[in-house]
């Protein structure tokens, strides 16, 4: 009993309990962005690689712009654009509550951002898919779509996976700045909000920020773990030393 009482009274344990719910908001932002960001990134990568001049240049420009500017500015920009379009569009259509809601707008901006970064990764891996394999597929009489489906696509994903994992980690970390730019509604606070609020209560920055950091660290390791299992599956046809390895510190760069 004494142990439980001590635990319930411990400031560190208390903080961990308080921040469990805010952590869900960070996880939500990441989870809501990935299912749309991933296919969009693949599409952009294929577009950049396409022989169609206009399409290729558009994708190139999109990727360059969103990789070349800070997410922080992108958040401000999209939020202010959405705000200024409110009177003309959202309000008459009756969707202003949804469009301007951070739980909607946050993932939208994150999707714009992460799809550009991931597209560059997929574009890179698309270029490294071995020519011999696609030529072999053509030689046995596969159509372009069949070649893509059975050779280019699986290789592209497999080669890009470690770097894409890295991008997902960066995306998860980027969710920390959502509420620095978008309004906080009621109790919908994320880890940074909560850490800041607790800090303003008792000025114990070392405790509160460390607990928030711990949440980010632990969830990041969880993402690596899940991504590592998927990576193993993607490489299951290869000898273990030929496959691409994934670890807690493969690619540092975004």
């Amino acid at each position: 009993m004494a142990v439980i009482e001590w635990l319930a009274d411990n400031a560190f344990v208390k903080d961990i309990m308080i921040m469990a719910k805010p952590a869900l908001f960070n996880i939500y932002f990441a989870l809501a962005s990935i299912p749309i960001g991933f296919p969009l990134a693949v599409a952009l990568a294929l577009g950049k690689n396409s022989t169609h001049r206009l399409l290729s240049n558009f994708c190139r420009g999109y990727i360059y712009a969103f990789r070349g500017s800070p997410l922080f500015i992108q958040f401000f920009m999209f939020y202010s654009i959405a705000l200024s379009m409110n009177r003309a569009y959202w309000k008459p259509w009756g969707i202003d509550d949804i469009v301007l809601h951070p739980l909607f707008l946050g993932p939208v901006v994150l999707i714009f951002n992460t799809s550009a970064y991931a597209a560059e990764i997929f574009y890179g891996s698309l270029r490294t898919v071995s020519k011999g394999e696609t030529e072999a597929a053509m030689a046995v009489g596969m159509s372009r779509w069949q070649t893509f489906r059975s050779v280019t696509w699986p290789n592209m994903i497999r080669l890009a996976w470690p770097a894409y994992t890295n991008e997902v980690i960066f995306l998860f970390h980027a969710t920390a700045i959502v509420y620095f730019t978008l309004p906080v509604i009621n109790e919908q606070k994320d880890l940074m909000n909560m850490a800041g609020e607790l800090f303003e209560r008792d000025y114990n920055i070392f405790l509160h920020f460390s607990v928030a950091a711990l949440y980010f660290l632990v969830i990041s390791i969880g993402i690596f773990w899940i991504a590592g299992m998927i990576n193993k599956r993607l490489n299951r046809h290869l000898l273990s030393d030929a496959s691409v390895k994934i670890g807690f510190k493969p690619n540092y760069m975004r």
Binding site: H173, I177, G196, A213, I221
Partner: peptide, 15 residues
């Protein structure tokens, strides 16, 4: 390097 890697830059930047 591991800790800085696992924590968002903005968190450390404020901390």
């Amino acid at each position: 390097t591991t800790i800085v890697r696992g924590v968002p830059d903005v968190l450390f930047f404020l901390f």
